[in-house]
C-alpha cells in the first residue's frame, strides 16, 4: 500500500465518521440550547455548557404520560434484556435439539422454525395481538416481551455453530460420561460464547428499538418504553420542547451504545482467540 492511497483512504474514512457523528453532535448540542430557539431553526453548533443540567432534569421529570424518563429507560432495558436472554436461551435449546437429537419429525420442526423467518412481528401483528388479548396479557410486561422472543434467526445461527462441532468431540464427551445437559453446559455453551455475545448485542439493540409492538400492546403509561416516551413528547396540543426531546434521545442512546462497547471487547476476544 503506497502512502498516497493510505492518505486517500483515511480521508474517506474521516468523511464517513463526520457524516455519522454530525447528527449525534447536533443532538447533544441541541439538548443544551433554548427550546424556542431550536423551534425557530436557530441551532448553534456549539453546546451551551451552562445548560448541562437539562439531562438530569429530563431524567427525573414526569413525562407527558405520567412516567419519568428514567422509569421508561428501565422498562426499555428490562424489555431488551428479557428479549435478548429469552431469545438466546430458546434458540440455544431448539438448535441443540434439532442438531444433536434424533426424534420423530425433527426436520419438520426445523423447517417450521425456518419458515417463521418470513413472519416477523409486523406481519403477524393482528393475530399476535389477538393471542395476547386472549391470554389477558395486554398491558403486561410479559405481553410486551414474549412475542418478540420467538425467532428463527438465532436458532439458525446456533445450528450453524453446532454443526461444525466434530462428531468425535461429541463422542469423546459421551465416553467421558457427559450427559446431554452437561455436554450443553460444559462444551457447547463455552464453544459458542463468542456467537452468543454477538447475538446478545444485536438482539439487545433490536429489543431496545422496538416501537410498533409496545405502542400496540401497552397503553398503560407504567409500561411506556423510552422510544414510546420520546414520541409522546413530540407534538400533541402543546408546544414541543425540542431541547428536552433531544436530551431524552441522548439518554435513550446511551444504554445500547454502552452494550455495544462493552460486548465488543468480548466479541473481539472470542474471535481473535479462535477457540474453534
Amino acid at each position: 500500500m503506497s502512502p498516497r492511497t493510505d492518505w486517500v483512504a483515511h480521508l474517506v474514512l474521516c468523511g464517513g465518521v463526520a457524516l455519522f457523528l454530525l447528527p449525534l453532535w447536533l443532538l447533544m448540542v441541541g439538548a443544551t440550547q433554548d427550546g424556542s430557539a431550536i423551534a425557530r431553526g436557530e441551532l448553534s453548533f456549539l453546546p451551551d455548557l451552562r445548560n448541562l443540567g437539562i439531562f438530569w432534569e429530563v431524567l427525573t421529570d414526569k413525562g407527558p404520560g405520567g412516567a419519568t424518563i428514567w422509569h421508561m429507560l428501565l422498562v426499555s432495558g428490562a424489555m431488551a434484556l428479557a428479549i435478548a436472554f429469552g431469545k438466546i436461551v430458546i434458540s440455544l435449546l431448539s438448535a441443540y435439539a434439532v442438531t444433536f437429537f434424533r426424534f420423530p419429525l425433527r426436520m419438520v420442526c426445523f423447517w417450521t422454525i425456518f419458515i417463521t423467518l418470513m413472519l416477523p412481528v409486523e406481519v403477524r401483528i393482528v393475530p399476535t395481538y389477538a393471542v395476547m388479548a386472549n391470554f389477558g396479557l395486554i398491558n403486561s410486561f410479559t405481553g410486551l416481551a414474549v412475542p418478540l422472543i420467538a425467532s428463527a434467526t438465532a436458532t439458525l445461527l446456533f445450528r450453524q455453530v453446532f454443526l461444525v462441532v466434530p462428531d468425535e468431540m461429541v463422542e469423546a464427551a459421551r465416553m467421558d460420561g457427559a450427559g446431554p445437559l452437561r455436554f450443553l453446559r460444559d462444551i457447547l455453551i463455552p464453544l459458542s460464547a463468542a456467537n452468543m455475545a454477538a447475538l446478545f448485542v444485536i438482539v439487545f439493540v433490536y429489543g431496545w428499538n422496538q416501537y410498533l409492538w409496545p405502542l400496540l400492546v401497552a397503553t398503560d403509561p407504567k409500561l411506556d418504553t423510552i422510544v414510546i416516551g420520546i414520541v409522546k413528547m413530540i407534538g400533541g396540543d402543546t408546544v414541543t420542547d425540542w431541547n428536552r426531546v433531544m436530551a431524552a434521545a441522548v439518554l435513550a442512546l446511551l444504554p445500547p451504545v454502552l452494550v455495544v462497547l462493552l460486548m465488543q471487547r468480548w466479541f473481539v476476544k472470542g474471535l481473535t482467540e479462535g477457540d474453534k
Binding site: 466434530p166 469423546a172 464427551a173 459421551r174 465416553m175 460444559d186 474453534k276
Partner: peptide, 18 residues
C-alpha cells in the same frame, strides 16, 4: 458408553478446545 469403563483415543484427538 460412560457405564462401560472404556476409554478411547480418537483419530483427530477430539480434545475440548476451550
Amino acid at each position: 458408553p460412560a457405564e462401560r469403563d472404556i476409554a478411547m483415543v480418537f483419530q483427530n484427538y477430539a480434545l475440548y478446545p476451550h
